[in-house]
Write a protein that binds this DNA or RNA. Structure first.
Lengths: 213, 213, 213, 213
DNA sequence: CATGAATGAGCATTCATTCAT
DNA sequence: TATGAATGAATGCTCATTCAT
């Protein structure tokens, strides 16, 4: 009832309007597949199933629509909940996290938000920054916090947890992310990811696990 | 007279024509700074100091010119000679290589070929592939060959040298490449690079150096 | 209930509907400030405090609305009652009339109906004609009628009263109207108007007053 | 030969290029007939017999093209040489000048630059100002200078020659300009002009000619 | 009757490409 | 070969108008 009422009152600017979502969905597909410049508002309108004019009812211009897409991506990926439960053993935690992270980064099916945002970062630096800070840096920070706790618990010996977090995440990308982003290889299979993450974990623990004397 | 004769015989496709080089130089600057779509043939012509028409004498179209630019970049970066002399100790080799690699990757001053090629890879997959294979994969292979030799020499214990090579290179990027490419940070300073590469080296050796028993 | 009944019976075309007036008021402001093409139906709707759709309930289209505005202006300016009382002396009558006429013509504060109608006259000749005939020509006629009476009374010697009326009115505009309409000068001050009207009156009387022998 | 050489060297920006003239001619026709907003660049291109793109080779944008048209009109009308030879008698001078002025102002055949510039003056005040100052005010000044000379010569008694000049010019417009600009009457015939100018002259001389004692 | 979301034709402008010289 | 004027298709965006509620 309340929901119905809200719907009845919904205005164009409504952040949650169905049309707005519809447009965002269509636009995301086009932007992620063709890049900012490659995407035309006409194509986006067609993909979203609305008229070109409607695009401009919901978004000020192409930039605004693109920023909204990235913002949505930021929100969605920021919500990605990695399991940093201290009760679990370190190996499992690293493996699960690494796997989930790579799957997020190398999402199959064309449209990679990472590539699309990287591509435009030179001309829209605030968009690039925002994406980095709220998606990548955020994940690094969360993981670093976990590592910190492990250090405190006496399981790991890490000087710079931020760097260590970043190192692990980059190691997990080894042989996977670059070929994927350059279109030199398809999205990695779960098996490939598992192998690489496993190796990254071993490397990480070899360097940072406190060795029993 | 001789020169004239040569000119008369010279073919447009002449890979080494001075005009061709001149165009490539201008085009590289524009493409790398503005991206494929951001660059206009007019701007390129101005940057190269030739007329727009001349561009089409040497290159079939914008795509062709861009591909030639990437090809040139590939050639140039492929020439980047890293010092994998087995006579040097492992630490120095890793440190020098890591440093040189990051400096190549995070070249300051805007025009990053890595970003430019990444950006277009979805729409021009062959270009992305070619760049990856002949620049990044090539470097991985050379480094892997070095590691192989070290394994044979009994200095390192590595199962998959390709993966290990990639791991070290990714580790060296930790906290540097992503912020740079997303415009969330300027090109890293030599000191920053040194610190990160040092840490990567330690990690790598902790994992792969044969421990004295 | 009664009100509802009236509403139910009320016709859209109702010339005196309050909504209609409200729209006309908003539209006049926008049209007169921005011109026919510069005015958008959205802006008009906002200025009138109604929805865009409502505009089309009361008026067929933008042209129709504009015509109604001009018609209203015509009606209003046609009502402008100049004091042509024969009991007053000629000097006072001319001075008062000239002043009032210039003030009407050079209304300060942007929105000049004269300019707006002039501007569109080439594309909407009937609108221009209607405005001229019912505002300007009407005033000329009324003034000419006055002059006629003065001629009959033996105060003035005028051959063509229509022309004389027009001459006086144009003389009053001297140095005022053209700079104003071309935006080369702000709306004239009362003092400026007084000076110019005074001079016009002198000129007029020098030409048309019967000289005492 | 010299001319040919110049043609060979002619560049796009050349103020006298034939294409530029061609565009200006087409654009003038369209702008003057439809007004600034009514004219579309497509229509202008068609009228000029060039492609839409070519318009932008010679002019920065629609505003720039319009301003160039007005500027050209200003130059042309500024060149209008009225005969203010002091050797001629005053009556002839006034009559000739008045006639020429009205013919300029009420040029038959649709496109009136006066109307077109008036129409846009609210939104492009500099254009309106420039037109007024360099066409209308210029003519007033020239005529005022003539009147001054006549005053000095003892033929006329005028206090404010600028105002008097303006008065005469406005008087000549009586019953002609307003109906013309509002499309309530076609361009006046020479006979009509002659009659009105004659009457204006009489009025002017009645007011300002020094009467023999 | 009143609304405002939706439309699609139309606009100014850009730019890769062609071609006569 | 080199030029640069010319093109026209395509783009982002606006706005008068419609229509379901």
């Amino acid at each position: 009832m309340v929901a119905q009422h809200q719907t009845a009152l919904s205005v164009v600017g409504d952040e949650d309007s169905a049309k707005r979502r519809q447009i965002l969905d269509g636009a995301r597909a086009v932007f992620m597949n063709l890049g900012f410049d490659g995407a035309s508002m006409g194509e986006i309108a067609r993909a979203a199933g609305v008229s070109k004019g409607t695009l401009y009812v919901y978004f000020a211009d192409k930039n605004g629509l693109f920023e909204a897409i990235v913002e949505q991506e930021v929100l969605e990926q920021g919500k990605a909940a990695f399991n940093f439960d201290l009760a679990r053993d370190v190996e499992t935690t690293l493996k699960d996290f690494g796997t989930a992270y790579i799957q997020l980064l190398c999402r199959p099916g064309g449209g990679s938000s990472t590539r699309t945002v990287m591509a435009i970062a030179e001309r829209m630096p605030e968009v690039g920054q925002r994406f980095y800070n709220n998606v990548i840096a955020l994940t690094i920070n969360r993981f670093a916090t976990y590592l910190d706790a492990r250090v405190t618990a006496g399981d790991l010996a890490i000087d710079d947890c931020q760097l260590a977090a970043s190192q692990f995440m980059m190691c997990c990308q080894a042989s996977l992310f670059m070929p994927f982003i350059f279109q030199a290889a398809p999205a990695p299979s779960p098996a490939e990811i598992a192998g690489v993450v496993d190796s990254a974990m071993n490397m990480f623990l070899a360097a940072y696990r406190i060795k029993p004397t």
